[in-house]
Amino acid sequence: MQGSSRLVGRLVLTLFVLWTVATILFLIFRLAPGSPLAAFVTPTFTAEQQESLTRQFGLDRSLFQQYLLYMSNLLQGNLGESFFYKRPVAEVVMTAFGNTIALTLGSLLVAYAFGVVMGAVFAWKRGTWIEGAGIPVVLVTRAAPEFWLGMVVLAIFAFSLGWFPGGGANSAGLTFSSEWARIFSLDFLRHLILPAFALALYLQGLPLLLMRTNMLEVMQEDFVTMARMKGLSNWAIVMRHAARNALLPVATAFALGIGQSVGGNVVVETVFSWPGLGRMLVEAVASSDYPLAQGAFLLITTVLVTMNFVADMLYSLLDPRIAHAGHR
């Protein structure tokens, strides 16, 4: 009972946040100095063309009417048409989204698998040289700008050694029967490895440090002492009891990480010319393709907010103290 009302509460909040961000975005784009079309419309446009554009974007109406139009379009999934691609924004954005998700999930999975294991090892080896040498290395990877890590990785592995392609998601000239065939092709994987590795290098620090701290804390708990008194094996104590408890916050961080990476990948995507959502946003902003910029931004926001919600739910699902409240 309590759980479901909590769920509804979080859901309402999530929708509220989405709506507010969409509104803020509307205000930014409409209230910014000059017409949003100014950057796009060049003197070569005829008056007629200009007028049709103005009408298309509802700029001849009052701000409030524009807002209503914008919201009703959003609700129908209508994000307008890209100036540059001359195609519906929703369509353009979804292609990029697939690439971004592949990159995000690929790098996060590697980063978290590595981080969780190494975090547990560091906790276990507390006070040894392994920890002494490992922690500074981890801190450096966390402090490095993602895109710089990308540049170094690119310079070494793609250009100096020539092991991997220097950018893009697919080799030029290749065609695929479907989007799925493209994403699951060997060619795509070959292009994915380097950017995913660079991102993973940056991302692994968080789960590692989180896991290490949690493990150290959990190992102090009475139930771990009890597990030893019960004569359980080290494996059972560490994996079944300590790690299971220490993993709770890491799982949440993973979900949050998906949401943050989708927006945060902007720079890495640019370095590797990865045709993802972030790079699309950058290009759209740079070329004043504002329907596309708006669409990309909204999609990034939606993923972020949704994953915040999922993380929250995941935590209560995994932690019985929240999932099974009551019944005393």
Binding site: F16, T20, G264, A296, L304
Partner: peptide, 22 residues
């Protein structure tokens, strides 16, 4: 706290990029 929730729902780097362009 609700305002904070909204702020946390804004993707940071993309927001700065959009801001910079205006």
């Amino acid at each position: 706290m609700r305002v904070a929730d909204v702020a946390l729902g804004i993707p940071f780097l993309p927001f700065v990029i959009v801001l910079s362009s205006f």
